[in-house]
Amino acid sequence: MEQNKMASLNTQILRMSGVNPRKCMRCGKCSGTCPAYDEMEYHPHQFVHMVETGDIASLLQSESIYKCLSCFACVERCPRGVEPAKLIEAIRSLKTRPVGQNHITPDEIPALLDEDLPQQAIVSALRKYMK
């Protein structure tokens, strides 16, 4: 049962992201270029590998999905066109969509503000972190 659910989540991630993890040749350039590497428990190349092998549960529970900056450096520099950032985005979307799974809530925002902070930052964070 649990296995079936994971398999279907995996299919969903592949469909949402449009990524084919089998294209990965395990060079690690994504992780070599990632600016948020040190903040992550699982790194971009591991995301690709874990989705390929179906280990979605660990990824869904990991804080790493909120650390991706969406800077697209991994997408740009991957020699095989794997696009790890799109995979991470799909997993994050999958995680935050169900009710009560928001990583950040509007109530938490005021404490984080300062007078110069552009709206763009708040809007982006909300888009990345909550349904």
């Binding site: 469909r15 985005e89 799909a90 979307s93 809007v123």
Partner: peptide, 16 residues
């Protein structure tokens, strides 16, 4: 209206 700040790359993300 506000663009949303980021483009969510998930293909099934429509409303935003």
């Amino acid at each position: 209206q506000c663009c949303g700040g980021v483009f969510n790359t998930s293909k099934d993300e429509i409303a935003t």
